[in-house]
Amino acid sequence: MDGTEAELLGRCAAGDTGAFSGIVEAYQDRIYSFALRLLRNPAAAEEAAQEAFVKAFRAISKYDSAYPFASWLFRIAHNVCMDALRAAGRNSSIDEEDFPDMADPAPGVEETVGASMDSERIEAMLAALPPIYSEVLLLRYREDMGPAEIGRVIGSPEGTVKARLSRGREILKKMLGDATVQGARP
């Protein structure tokens, strides 16, 4: 955490909403993108991201500076998004560890082929994954968090994080393989 952020957080803890607006601006795209990739709905993602920031402000005095602020904020965003998914009735994809064969991935996934993956293609593949896998992959590779830090974010043991990462990669590789095979067909 840099000095400016620490200073802003100190002012937020004293109830300065102006300082918090600086924090929101620094993290809004990351939190909104995370929520959007989990909820797949721009309005729901905006609502969840706003709710996460409001909750963060209200609980800022509980933030322990021994841990990165980003992972603390992502933890709140994770909780809000999981609540939103449950409310939307997507419980099964949140709670079930097991995942069936990817017979019908998101539209467009199988149409795109080639060795390199563009962002649209990986977005589509992530959207086809249950949120428990897509979120750990996003936190690991997009947010550059380690398994222990991801564990703190999602409130699960490190072993669970590693298992989900492995399973998520496996499913993506299978999707990638299917797409390549489909593309190779005459």
Binding site: F20, S21, V24, E25, Q28, D29, R30, I31, Y32, S33, L36, P42, E46, A49, Q50, F53, V54, F57, M117, D118, S119, R121, I122, E123, L126, L137, L138, R140, Y141, R142, D144, R169, L172, K173, L176
Partner: peptide, 21 residues
């Protein structure tokens, strides 16, 4: 896969997001 996820662009939060928060 790792590289592709890493390269994913952040989606821009809607205009006026921080003001609404």
């Amino acid at each position: 896969i790792a590289q592709a996820i890493k390269a994913l662009p952040y989606r821009k939060a809607p205009a006026g997001f921080s003001a609404r928060v």
